[in-house]
């Protein structure tokens, strides 16, 4: 595919559907903080009750994620970062965008292995997801790694949204680009706080399930 279209598609998929998915993921996880186990289970059941849920996942999450991730690694490889000589805010964000992209890529693989993949191979059910998450975030080291992963993902999305607005010619002038920086960085802060609150929500003892599930969580983690 010609470079222009492949890059344009990469930019589009990052926002629609992947950005949309990240926001919906954040909202359903935030239910764990707001409504406890009951709230989170309600969100899980709601998502799984959607029609054609397999195809929604395939076309709105997995395939866009694969394309955006693999092509994104290639874009990150292509840059010769030069923040040493050009120590400017936009150039630093350009570099962080590539670093957080790679971190997010690794984090998403790890996180999907722990959760969605275990459901796929039948080791756990959707109802046990809360317990799996409880097992992960109760471990201080894994909690810290999850914070890094989540901050990377939210920054990459918020800053990517800023770049999307430039790349599609929506914010053209310097003032528009400056104001969209404030909005996007505000979005980064709000999303980060909500995700981290959700993770603290999962630490609550009510997510602790029967021993069997914890054992599964442990084998998954080891």
């Amino acid at each position: 595919m010609k470079g222009y279209y492949s890059r344009k598609l990469h930019s589009l998929l990052g926002v629609i559907p992947l950005g949309g998915f990240l926001i919906s993921h954040m909202i359903s996880n935030y239910k764990a903080f707001e409504g406890g186990k009951e709230g989170f289970m309600g969100a899980v059941h709601f998502l799984n009750s959607m029609p054609l849920v397999f195809f929604l996942e395939l076309f709105l999450i997995w395939l866009p994620l694969l394309y955006h991730g693999v092509y994104g690694l290639y874009i990150a490889y292509q840059a010769n970062n030069n923040v040493g000589n050009f120590n400017y805010e936009r150039n630093i964000r350009f570099m962080i965008q590539r670093i957080t992209g790679v971190i997010t890529f690794v984090f998403v693989i790890w996180h999907m292995y722990d959760t969605r993949f275990q459901i796929m191979i039948g080791k756990i059910t959707h109802d046990e997801l809360g317990a799996v998450m409880h097992g992960i975030v109760s471990n201080p080291v894994l909690f810290a790694l999850y914070v890094v992963g989540v901050l990377s993902a939210t920054f990459h999305f918020a800053n990517g949204l800023w770049a999307f607005l430039v790349s599609w010619g929506i914010t053209v002038g310097p003032r528009a680009q400056r104001i969209s920086t404030y909005i996007c960085m505000g979005l980064f802060v709000v999303m980060s706080v909500m995700f981290i609150l959700a993770m603290t929500g999962f630490r609550d003892a009510e997510f602790q399930a029967a021993n069997a599930v914890i054992d599964i969580a442990k084998t998954v983690l080891s």
Binding site: K2, G3, Y4, S6, R7, K8, I75, A79, N82, F86, Y88, R90, N91, F94, M95, W162, A163, V166, S167
Partner: peptide, 19 residues
Amino acid sequence: LMQDGGIEGCGNSQNCVRA
């Protein structure tokens, strides 16, 4: 500009305008 090596190569580091 829509050919290979055209405008898609921009990654918005915005060093150009500063330099």
